[in-house]
Amino acid sequence: MFTINLKRVFKTGYKNFHRNDWLSMATVLIMVLVLFVLGGLVFFSALAGTILGNFESKIDITVYFKPEAPEAGIFDVKKEVEALPQVADIKYISKEDALVQFKEKNKGNALILDSLNELGDNPLEAALNIRAKTPESYAAIGDFLAKKNYPLVDKINYFENQEIIERFGAILGTIKGWGAFTLFILAFLAVLVAFNTIRLAIYTMREEINIMRLVGAANWFVRGPFMVTGVIYGLVAALAASVMFFPLTWLIAPKLSFLVPQFNLFSYFIGHFVQFFGLMLVAGVALGLSSSLIAIRKYLRV
């Protein structure tokens, strides 16, 4: 008896879906749009993460040492700074390395190279390049260096760039906060639209729901097929959205990597396809099912 009924519920749910083809198509289309927004949000946050990571890796503190500073002394400082919990990575650049880098950077500029030769001696200073784990911890590292006031240190470029680094940190924080807020609002709107579409679909069947009850159908026997239809909406929408993201990401990827060379949208999509498809499925089915459940409650009065 139970299996017969279950079979009937599924059959009717499927029939509802394919007989009301226009209504089904419209509903699925709206849900595809919702899933597009959702997928777009996923891509956007991945992209934003890459950009922010990229910026963050470019912030650093460089400590320059006086020309007469012995390497052993510099290594002592390095060891102390390395011990700080905020430090992600520290790199020693010797006077010679600095000269090589400088020459490389000014390869095309004969005037600079000539004047360098004129000097004869290496005018550049050895330096320590410090990278913090988070942009916010640069201030702590800077404070530490200032307090220690090492005699070998000539200058610390954090203090020159302090304002820029701090402002950048603040901007990053704001972008993250507003980004999350915007994503949330967008997702909420999308869900609302999908929910209303399904509600409208069920609204058109309110008279039928009444009739079913009056000819002796149990509540769940009426509700069941609508739930099945809702799940089918979700499944089809998830499938359609996931398939459509293939050409879409492939087309957008080259344009995007022009702006952000470190991020390839298409390979990100391919690389995370299983998780992505899973997310689409879960979101689509949850949306279809919950919308149907909530909407039909209202019309199961008789």
């Binding site: 039928e208 009444n210 009739i211 079913m212 009056l214 000819v215 002796g216 026997f221």
Partner: peptide, 29 residues
Amino acid sequence: RRRIGTIFQDYKLLPAKTVYENVAFAMEA
């Protein structure tokens, strides 16, 4: 309600179901 068969003034047939399915629905339910 299953013990009562009702013939409604406005028929109350299920518009998305065929004649056969309309009658069968009462049995399925």
